[in-house]
Design a protein around this nucleic acid. Structure first.
Length: 877
RNA sequence: GCGGACAUGGCGGAACCGGUAGACGCAACGGACUUAAAAUCCGUUUCCCGUAAGGGAGUGAGGGUUCGAGUCCCUCUGUCCGCACCA
């Protein structure tokens, strides 16, 4: 065979790998283990370029670690529960289960041609009863451990999906999936006590040194720790049982500037007043109507209602402050009540201005007390002059003043220092069918009772319909009917299912023993966990990664994970997207019209890149004397296409490239190489047709080079054997370093260089073949099929996939002579070649004798001479 | 508003601890082969002046530290991302 034909060689080698079972993960105590995991896909039915990039990245790591002697676990599964399956059932009929499993089969078929080193024997889907049953068992254990509870709560209700959303799933006041404006409803829900771990999840971030700083920061902000003072006001004129009002503040140093107190419309006191006062009821109802979207919040006016109740200032019994119900106070942060200091808080200032409340500065920048036109909110570390301070120095930072104020109040029994978190408990109830049933039963006699583990898995009923909105489980005639696991009497099943983020919070642990009869197998999790390298999109920086960190801790508490696995992902890498240009024209009304890449032509005209509709040949420059006019004419006719670069692939914009088409045209190795080259993996990479072709051409050149070397006469003696040995050693060192440091683009650049060197070299036949084998080994993680082919052609033993990773001879990595640039006054003027270990004194002599140096110095005296051995010489004149 | 990241040729990007800026790839241009084109191969390609030898400028802008700054420090501008009535 003389041509590079991926469609022939790729299936061949995949069959060989399968036959030999080379990717089966086997625990081996004599080797270090390595667990590589890419975030598992949702089975939408089609793989996209983002998947190709994600899984290729993981595969490069997995293949390299395997070659370096690790026992590697590299599994794949499916995040298979969720709304789209139900939506499909609603839109097209059919059953979510059939839709999901047929999508899984399709996607598996699309993934296999990529030649990923995945242990498919461990595959599972989260909707498999064998998986969800184990999840239910853990839910029961977590209930017993006090990590799960039920409470009535104001929740985010998605009116389109007809379900509850977690706070993390509300983006700008809209459902993360439906994009519908979220409403506030009070429902009884199941919660995980993630807030028990707020401090721990925050402090442990420091130990995640192999996570991107950005992700750790996002999680820290999300957990939202703050230190402040919690204290109680004594009330005057409040109803019985409300003689004290607890408030929380992060700025106790501003207590002397207090001018009012305010409570949330959801505060118990507000609720009490609501029942007895129609005016309050009307106001509170109005507050609840306001949406939670960012726009609504930004434009919403600060509104309050004076309750007529007052509170006594903690430092002065005679100083009374009015108590308002205010629409901007959140019930679920702090105590749901605040004191207002208009001088040093923007919201309080707006509120005080509106209701004519006093504005008294506690501190100013210069110590003079002038009327404020806006709230003065300095940075915490900024030094200010306290004019109504009560603790510590007159001049200090806000930070120090807060600490002093907390200490001052604690000494006098006014309150206590409290650490507060923004993170709230994780509501997991979903009023949906296609999710993991919550294994709980409602019994008239016993109340809410966990199922017996013997009854697991609780399976979803198959006979359900999706013709009306709402939860089909609620409508099912018999599914809910069951008996109480405690008293045996008639009982009703819980019809809520779990948030699908629960499914993805422990799948990594299940992969270590996917067929175990218990959620995890102690020996297997102990051997394989933690995940050494996790790879996925940055969009999961908060939700999935925070839930998983919590869940691992909860699994440890319930005995399903060892202590060493409470941080499930040792290293995290967040990869960028695969983007593509959008080709757009406008219709008569000026609305954008999108075009498929194959429907446009791009050429260069007078140094300009021009894209036009249709399969147009580039115009002859001689025939188009006035290019501007020609382009204008084209534009008027609507033939000129506007190009939007680096856009996220989306069907509606018609800029999606289907990996299957690329594999059919160029092979999987080309797709794999392309997505790993050019851009650093954490950044977006733009898919271009020319880039894909160029990649294919390069791989074809490697193929042709291999054929040429294989056909060299055995006896050929070359002159470049030493140089080749050095080039190979350097390539091994640099490619290895590139892969180990996740700089795949640099590794690939080195492979280009190495290939160019080899193709131009005249080495003896055995050396050429050995060097080509090294190239095959270094390419194997990226282009495994081609690498096998080359390896075989050059007489490699066994499979290159199983060959030990090369180790360079250190002696070959250092050159005997070095080229030193010579700078004169910081400008490069000459260079000299010297033996690597020449003493600095001799290097100086040589440098000063250099004719270019003499010419540039023109007799000037030398003030200073710097020689950095092996690096540079700088002459200061 | 708060928090963070980034800024290098026509483009994607290299440049390790401060030591030859622009590796590698794309695009473009020139040449060889060809009746021609494609493919392939060889070469040029940061910008400016110069036929050339050579010289000058140059990593978003301004300043600083240093023998030497893309890299460190300060100020500014722009772009992107996350959070957002969190008391």
């Amino acid at each position: 065979m003389s041509r590079y034909e991926p469609s022939v060689i790729e299936p061949k080698w995949r069959a060989v790998w399968d036959e030999a079972g080379v990717f089966e993960a086997k625990a081996n105590p004599s080797r270090p283990k390595y667990y590589v995991l890419e975030m598992f896909p949702y089975p939408s039915g089609r793989i996209h370029m983002g998947h190709v990039r994600n899984y290729t990245m993981g595969d490069v790591v997995a293949r390299t670690k395997a070659a370096q002697g690790h026992a590697v676990l590299h599994p794949m599964g499916w995040d298979a529960f969720g709304m789209p399956a139900e939506n499909a059932a609603m839109e097209r009929g059919g059953h979510p289960k059939d839709w999901t499993y047929s999508n899984i089969a399709d996607m598996r078929d699309q993934m296999k041609p990529l030649g990923l080193s995945i242990d498919w024997s461990r595959e599972f889907a989260t909707c498999d009863p064998e998986y969800s049953g184990q999840q239910q068992a853990m839910f029961i254990d977590m209930m017993a451990a006090g990590l799960v509870y039920r409470k009535a709560a104001v929740v985010n209700w998605d009116p389109v999906d007809m379900t509850v959303l977690a706070n993390e799933q509300v983006i700008d006041g809209r459902g993360w999936r439906s994009n519908a404006l979220v409403e506030r409803r009070e429902l009884t829900q199941w919660f995980f006590k993630i807030s028990d771990y707020s401090a721990e999840l925050l402090s442990a971030l420091d130990g995640l040194t192999h996570w991107p700083e950005k992700v750790r920061l996002m999680q820290a902000n999300w957990i939202g720790q703050s230190r402040g003072l919690q204290f109680a006001f004594g009330t005057v004129g409040a109803p019985e049982g409300f003689d004290r009002l607890e408030v929380y503040t992060t700025r106790p140093d501003t207590l002397m500037g207090a001018s009012f107190a305010a409570i949330s419309p959801d505060h118990p006191l507000a609720k009490h007043l609501e029942r007895h006062d129609p005016a309050v009821a009307a106001f509170v109802a109005e507050c609840r109507q306001v949406g939670t979207s960012a726009e609504a919040l930004e434009t919403a006016e600060k509104k309050g209602m004076d309750t007529g109740i007052t509170v006594r200032h903690p430092f002065d019994d005679t100083w009374e402050l009015p108590v308002y119900i205010a629409n901007f106070i959140l019930m679920d942060y702090g105590t749901g009540a605040i004191f207002g200091c208009p001088a040093h808080d923007d919201r309080d200032f707006e509120f005080a201005t509106k209701y004519g409340l006093p504005i008294n500065a506690v501190f100013t920048s210069d110590g003079t007390d002038a009327a404020l036109t806006e709230a003065y909110v300095p940075m915490k570390s900024e030094r200010v002059q306290y004019i109504r301070g009560f603790a510590g120095d007159a001049e200090q930072t806000g930070e120090a003043a807060v600490a002093a104020a907390i200490a001052f109040c604690e000494e006098r029994g006014i309150g206590r220092g409290v650490t507060n978190y923004r993170l709230r408990d994780w509501g997991v109830s979903r009023q949906r069918y296609w999710g993991c049933p919550i294994p709980v039963v409602h019994c008239a006699a016993c109340g809410v009772v966990a199922e017996k583990k013997d009854n697991l898995p609780i399976r979803l009923p198959d006979d359900v319909t999706f013709d009306v909105p709402g939860n089909p489980l609620d409508r099912h005639p018999t599914w809910r009917m069951t008996s109480c696991p405690q008293c045996g009497g008639d009982a009703r099943r819980e019809t809520d299912t779990m948030d699908t983020f629960v499914d993805s919070s422990w799948y990594y642990a299940r992969f270590t023993a996917p067929r175990a009869e218990t959620p995890t197998d102690a020996a297997e999790v102990d051997y394989w966990m933690t995940v050494d390298q996790y790879i996925g999109g940055v969009e999961h920086a908060i939700l999935h990664l925070l839930y998983s960190r919590f869940f691992a801790r909860a699994m440890h508490k319930t005995g399903h994970l060892p202590a060493k696995a409470i941080e499930p992902f040792n290293a995290l890498f967040t990869q960028g997207m695969v983007t593509h240009e959008i080709y757009q024209t406008r219709d008569a009304a000026g609305r954008p019209v999108y075009h498929l890449p194959e429907d446009v032509t791009t050429f260069t005209l007078a140094d300009r890149r021009v894209t036009v509709l249709g399969n147009v040949p580039p115009p002859d420059p001689d025939m188009v004397p006035d290019i501007d006019a020609w382009l204008q004419g084209l534009d008027d006719e609507g033939g000129l296409v506007e190009v939007i670069p680096s856009a996220k692939m989306s069907k509606s914009k018609k800029n999606v490239v289907d990996p299957m088409n690329i594999i059919a045209a160029f092979g999987a190795d080309t797709a794999r190489w392309f997505v790993m080259s050019d851009s650093p993996p954490e950044r977006d990479v733009e898919w271009t047709a020319s880039g894909a072709e160029a990649t294919f051409k390069h791989l074809s050149r490697v193929w042709a080079l291999s054929v040429r070397i294989a056909e060299m006469p055995e006896s050929h003696q070359g002159t470049d054997d030493d140089a080749l040995a050095r080039a190979a050693a350097r390539a091994v060192a640099e490619v290895t370093h590139g892969i180990d440091s996740f700089a795949f683009n640099k590794a690939i650049a080195k492979l280009y260089e190495f290939t160019n060197t080899l193709s131009r070299a005249n080495g003896s036949t055995p050396v050429m073949r050995a060097t080509m084998r090294t190239l095959a080994q270094l390419m194997q993680p990226m282009t495994p099929h081609l690498a096998e082919e080359v390896w075989q052609a050059q007489g490699g033993t066994g499979l290159v996939t199983q060959a030990a990773w090369p180790i360079p001879d250190p002696a070959l990595l250092v050159d005997d002579t070095v080229t030193l640039p010579i700078q004169i006054n910081g400008k490069r003027r000459a260079e000299i070649s010297v033996p690597r270990d020449m003493p600095a004194a001799e290097v100086e002599k040589l440098a000063l004798a250099n004719e270019d140096v003499v010419r540039f110095l023109a007799g000037q005296p030398i003030k200073k001479l710097i020689v950095v051995p092996g690096r540079i010489i700088n002459v200061v004149a």
